[in-house]
Every structure is written in structure tokens, then in C-alpha cells.
Nucleic acid binder design. Structure first.
Lengths: 209, 209
DNA sequence: AATAATTAATCAAACGTTTGTTTAGTTTTA
DNA sequence: TAAAACTAAACAAACGTTTGATTAATTATT
């Protein structure tokens, strides 16, 4: 879908306010005001608030799919190295699209079969299948051990990153990082998360001693 | 606070619907209907919807504090064993109070200084301090290694459990557990999460080979 | 190239619902 | 019989959406 400037302004404002206040908590009036457009333009362009939410998803999910497919093909990289690249990719995506990820977290708490729930489900399933394949490759080559619960492992990846991002201010407080600028802090967290998760994954996947 | 039967019915219904639809998504009419009480009873007993939410928190957080304080005192248990007990305690609490934890997850996405945000913050801070102390004890005794990021470690605990509980149906689907009863599944997840997290924590905390 | 016709974009105002809360009255309890 | 518990109805405010009018931009016609 191609959007003009005004439509993109609405989508960006919607993303921001949906992330902050939730779908029901963010009124179309607030979104219109934030985007500096007339209230009626939202219905005019997107049809409804619900459809606007779908547009936000459509706009963001296109870029969000992990680059696993291409990565798996590459024969010049070891499988553990591939996993490490994947971790960094995931951490980066989450940090740089925090608001959208917050919407996703919220949406997953609703156990209804909305069109958005279907989009999220498909996205997760595709990623999971790719990663399962990657783990199997590592097991065949002898790099990884047997009996790995990939779902559980991915929950640790996704869960840890989600938690840190959701509780940023708490993390800052606990580690006396309140004076860091936003960019400094992002860099710090990125590095910390990366090494933390790589260590965990190494311990889950290999028989390192 | 002491609540009568009707008040408890309201609190329970509110917990359920807040977890499912969020604060704004759950109307007081829905809550009243679910609790089989007249709409006006909510204002009558709790004053407002906001105060009802606070009552839900007050009612649940009293039981939720991890039993770390007592645990730390106990000299008959090793520190790694204490950590393992803590993990089981946390997993159990999360599984048996899923709805309340979903509300907490949602509430943490809102970056506003609501009374509830303050309650959550205090709860987390107290737990974090206790666990930091526990880790330090383990380091002094030589059981644990140095340079442990406790915040990051706790993010992995909380994040992994949250993620699995939030995405239960996805976890079931990925592991072909759709036919399990709710209780069987809870037992299964409990065991899986427990061993998974204990392995991770052992690897984070000790120099095991 | 100038004008008419058509479409798209924009807006303030109003629509009908639903929202949380209150009222004023009734029933129950002690 | 006074206080507490309870209710149906009404309240104003906020909600998402639609309307009808107006302006800007594009296309068609002469």
C-alpha cells in the first residue's frame, strides 16, 4: 500500500498513541490532533479506527520479518554464529521499533481472533519455523546438542528483550543510568542484551565447558 | 481491607475483564453483569472504576510478594538452591494468577505515574533488592561468579515466563499440545519452565563445567 | 489556452452510542 | 426505625462515525 504524507502522519501518530494508551485508550480525536489533521480524515482515509490499526500493522510488519531465510542459506557462517546474528537482529528491531512492539505485546494479551491477531500469529509462526530449521541444521552438524525446546528458547529471547524495553526506566533506575541520554542508553542496552542473550543461547544450544 | 461476598465478586470479575480487554476496554457495565450485581454497586462500594482497579491490585499484591525475605535467612539451604526455589515460586505465582499478571503487563506499558504504576514499581523494587542481596551472598560464599547483572537476569526470568503465559495457545500449537486439558498443560509448562530457567540461571550464576 | 465538469481533499458540525457516575427512591437488615 | 444495601432511571461527557458544504486539484471539452 502507498500512503501520502498525511496518511503517514496519521499512521505514525496512531502508532505512538496506541503504544502509549492502548487501542481503546487512544481516541481518534487525539490521534487526529497529534497528526495535525482534521478528525474526519481518519475515516476518510482509513474507513475506521480498527482499519487504521490494521494499516499501522501492515505498514510495520513488512519490515519486521527477521532475515532468517537468507541467513540459513549462507554456508560460510557457522550455525552458532547465525544464531548470534539473529539475536542482534532481533534486539535491534525491538529497540528501534519500540512503539510498534508495545502495540504487539498489548495485542497479544487479547485472546480474540481479530485480523491483527492473525497477522501476529502468522509472523511468529514463520519466524519459529525458520529458527527450528536453523537449530536442526546445527544439530545435524554436531554444533548443537539434542533435545532443544526451540519454543522455550525463543520465549527467553523475546521475553527478555520485551521486558527490558517495557521496563526501561526501571532498568535505568536499578543500574543508576538515569543521566544517560536516550541514545547512549539504547547503545548500552543493546550491548548488554546482546552479550547476555548470546551467553544464554550458547549454554542452551552447545555443550561448551 | 475486608470485602464482602459481593465486593469480591466485583473484584474477581474486574480482574478477569481488565485482563482480557484492558482497563478502557472493559466497561463497568460488563463488569457488573459478569459479577451479577447492579451497575451502581461498583460506584457504591469502590467509588470509581479507577478505584476498583486499585482494589484489584491491593487484593492481589498482598499475596504476590516473593518469599525472598524469609528464604534469605535460612542458613540450611545453599544459595543456588535458594535461587531454584525462587524460580519455582515465581513460575507458580505467574501460572496461578495469570489474569492479574496480564493486567500488570498491560499496566507497565503505560508510562504514566498512576497510583497503580507506583504500586508495581514498589513491588518490583523490593523484590529486586532482595534478589540482589541473595546474589551477593552467593558471591561472598564463592558459589556464584562475579560481575552478574541481576536486572538483566531477572528480566530473563520475568520475560520468559510472561511470554510463555501470554502466548500459551501459540506454545500449545508449536508443540502439538492442543489436546491437553488446561490442568495437564499447566503442569507441563510449569515443569518445562522450571528446568529451562534453572539451567539458564545456573549458567549465568556459576562456573559450572 | 480557456473554460467547464469532475474528482479529491478538507472542514466544522452534528449524529447516535456508549461511557462512568449520580440521583432519588425502594427494599432489606439489624 | 434508622442505617445499609440495592435498584432503575437519568446524567453529562466522550466516543467513533457521518454529513453536507467548501475548497483545491485534475481531467475533459471547446
Amino acid at each position: 500500500m502507498e500512503y501520502n504524507e498525511k496518511q503517514l502522519a496519521i499512521i505514525n501518530s496512531a502508532e505512538k498513541l496506541f503504544a502509549l494508551n492502548g487501542f481503546d485508550g487512544a481516541s481518534v480525536r487525539d490521534i487526529a490532533h497529534e497528526a495535525c489533521v482534521n478528525l474526519a480524515m481518519i475515516s476518510y482515509y482509513f474507513g475506521s479506527k480498527e482499519k487504521l490499526m490494521e494499516a499501522v500493522f501492515e505498514q510495520r510488519t513488512t519490515k519486521i520479518r527477521l532475515k532468517v531465510e537468507n541467513l540459513i542459506q549462507d554456508t560460510s557462517i557457522g550455525n552458532l554464529e547465525k544464531v548470534n546474528i539473529l539475536i542482534d537482529d532481533y534486539v535491534d528491531k525491538f529497540i528501534h521499533q519500540q512503539e510498534f512492539h508495545k502495540i504487539m505485546l498489548r495485542e497479544q494479551l487479547i485472546e480474540k481472533n481479530t485480523p491483527i491477531a492473525a497477522l501476529i500469529h502468522e509472523l511468529k509462526k514463520k519466524n519459529m519455523e525458520s529458527i527450528k530449521k536453523l537449530v536442526m541444521d546445527g544439530q545435524k552438524s554436531g554444533e548443537f546438542k539434542k533435545n532443544i525446546d526451540v519454543t522455550l528458547m525463543m520465549s527467553t529471547l523475546v521475553g527478555t528483550v520485551s521486558n527490558i524495553i517495557t521496563c526501561q526506566s526501571f532498568y535505568r533506575e536499578m543500574n543508576n543510568l538515569e543521566n544517560m541520554t536516550e541514545i547512549e542508553f539504547q547503545k548500552h542496552v543493546r550491548k548488554k542484551l546482546s552479550t547476555h542473550l548470546k551467553n544464554i543461547f550458547k549454554s542452551i544450544l552447545t555443550n561448551e565447558g
